[in-house]
Design a protein around this nucleic acid. Structure first.
Ligand code: FES
Ligand code: FES
Lengths: 144, 144
DNA sequence: ATAATAAAAGATATCATTGTCTTTTATGTT
DNA sequence: AACATAAAAGACAATGATATCTTTTATTAT
């Protein structure tokens, strides 16, 4: 469904959000251990997320990654996915045709678009804050 | 969503089904032109589909690929996807956790599984014959 | 039998994704 | 100012997916 980059990026963002909610910034090492991801690769992903203002970062001692609580209210998963995987998941044809639209549809088009839209809506309607709040229930996990 | 192999495989199978419905076997060259796919790569995919009894093939002059009409009634898209992409699309965690289950869910689990199940149902409930019949409407396309 | 046709099989090549390693830049502490 | 910390940036490596090419096998037609 999503690329590895996107999977790690989503997990990392949720973890950063969770910790920021508790008032603490987190370092790359802490993140990659918390979400069980390859550290150097995760660094690259965090660079992209930082560049695209999904997360904030501060260099130097006591630096690290964080997200403002206010930003968590409006940040939805769709924004993260779009940064890391582009919008092909929202616009791409299920059968790989170059164009996907109602005018010249593939035989799976209408059935496929219905599900694609649900996925899109789910990602757009799910904010980081929702997931961070859910995480407080101690039911959900970010590794294995 | 699906791999290139799976996209080409689905398109190829639909085309073979369509032509078989008209009573004609089709060659690799005909298929790859009809669905606009790389020929040699498509050959490899058709080998997999043949080995897994999704399509039939006959070597030699007047040979080619075909599917029995009876088989089209029971062959659903899910079977094709499973041969070419495995079942990770049905069982994999949206955030990339090694296990996906209700016992130790990721924060996206329940929302994600809901959509994953819809996709699964759609693929299981859509038979090749349905798509082949739809193709007769001249509304749907298998390339560009 | 020979030649032609067409898929199967095997080997190899290309590319994007995934992943690592090293150097640089920014910031805080002593 | 010197040092330590931590992210940013750039170069490089490994892997798997995608794609091609060649050889073999099966079948049909002459
Ligand atoms: S054209 Fe294939 S999903 Fe829209
Ligand atoms: S555990 Fe993540 S989708 Fe099920």
């Amino acid at each position: 469904m999503f690329s590895k980059s996107c999977e790690y990026g989503l997990r990392a963002t949720i973890f950063i959000g969770q910790q920021s909610h508790l008032g603490t910034k987190v370092s790359l090492t802490t993140i990659s251990e918390a979400i069980d991801s390859p550290q150097a690769f995760t660094a690259k992903i965090l660079q992209q997320l930082t560049k695209n203002n999904i997360v904030n970062s501060i260099k130097g001692p006591h630096g690290g990654f964080f997200i403002e609580t206010e930003a968590m209210k409006t940040l939805n998963l769709s924004a993260i996915v779009e940064v890391l995987d582009g919008d092909s998941i929202y616009t791409g044809c299920g059968l790989g045709l170059k164009q996907c639209n109602d005018k010249k549809p593939c035989p799976l088009h209408f059935k496929f678009v219905a599900i694609r839209e649900e996925l899109k809506n789910m990602l757009q309607n799910t904010t980081l804050l929702m997931l961070v709040n859910d995480m407080e229930l101690d039911i959900f996990h970010l590794k294995t």
